[in-house]
Design a protein around this nucleic acid. Structure first.
Lengths: 197, 197
DNA sequence: ACCAAATCAGAATGAGAGTTCTGATTTGTA
DNA sequence: TACAAATCAGAACTCTCATTCTGATTTGGT
């Protein structure tokens, strides 16, 4: 054929995800992306399209990565409240004390792009609903194990946990200490537990 | 003396607050501000300084406005859980179904500016702590009225409510319906109530 | 009425953005 | 080996931004 591509799109997209996650959409320039990934403008535009389209693909990969890394285990039978707690602990560890200022790409999208970009808003809604649903399924398993009160509406609680995750991310980005975030996780998960003590 | 200023700084700052709230820092240009406020560049720079400094003043006025409008009543004796619920209801009403895409300036600041701007991050921490403290004081009053469980650590719960407010704002900006946000408010406040039923 | 100082509206400036274009380079195939 | 197609690095282009500058205008004090 001809000259072959010298970069792996998936790897490149991962680096782009990191950039967008830490700085957001507007604050990340194509020049930043070229420098960080080492991929030429030609390669970026030819492979991913415009910056806006690149962002959409980064958002999808970000969600897929979080899904595989964290939320998949909630869909397996036997998922427990500890699994949910572990997800929060992992995310909290990423959020604070991190020099990389790693942020939440969902929040960046919601604040910067969602209001003006109907398509991206739809994508974001779908991803957030998926997240809430995964929490709900995990909560249902935990309920079967007697770890969650029978009074809890798992769908509503799933949305609560999604919302909590975003609140934590905002506080983490503002520089609040890990102890504060841990306290919020404890309160939230504690409120779902059986009231017997 | 000489020619007098033709605008009221406080009124202008209110308009700037609205702009920054709905679009964030980067997406709001000085041209936007000139057009919306009707104030000349000369007036803006002379009165408020650079865009970054203008934003800081807008953030302070935003917080002060929210404080006077919503949180002051929590500091009065006799504050009840209904006062807290009313604050959430008002904020939720602003967040969704709004054509204005009114967002939360705290979140914009946290996501766009806080990591890079140490001073602004400090300001934001102070404002958020004040918000948590107001919640805590309100919760303490509500506890005295028997509306909140005696087991609740009001300081921790205050931080929880602050975090919840941010989670709600993110979901609202993503376009989730009011019912979803109301459900989260109900779950959160419900978890604080006395467990007797 | 007139001066001086501060205002206004908008042009000018310089930096940085996203995107496209260009010549040189690489690589699979004939 | 030579061709052709696709890549690369980076210049070029156009636009927007924040900020400064400029000439005209307003206004309080003498």
């Amino acid at each position: 054929m001809n000259r072959a591509r010298t970069f792996d799109p998936h790897t490149t997209l991962s680096q782009v995800v990191d950039l967008f996650s830490s700085k957001g959409y507007s604050e990340t320039s194509m020049e930043d992306i070229v420098q960080t990934t080492g991929v030429s403008r030609y390669g970026l535009y030819g492979t991913f399209g415009t910056k806006r389209e690149l962002f959409e693909q980064a958002l999808e990969q970000y969600a897929e990565g979080m899904g595989k890394q964290s939320f998949l285990r909630l869909l397996e039978p036997g998922a427990s409240l500890d699994h949910i707690r572990a997800i929060f602990d992992e995310r909290v560890a990423d959020m604070c004390c991190a020099e990389e200022h790693k942020g939440c790409l969902f929040i960046h999208t919601a604040m910067q792009l969602a209001p003006q970009d109907e398509e991206l808003r739809g994508v974001l809604q779908r991803l957030m609903k998926r997240m809430s649903k995964a929490f709900a399924i995990g909560l249902d398993s935990a309920k079967g194990r007697g770890e969650v009160s029978k009074d809890v509406d798992v769908d509503a609680a799933g949305e609560l946990l999604t919302s909590t995750m975003f609140g934590l991310a905002v506080l983490g980005r503002t520089g609040f200490p890990k102890a504060t975030l841990d306290g919020i996780v404890d309160s939230t998960l504690g409120s779902l537990q059986e009231e017997s003590k």
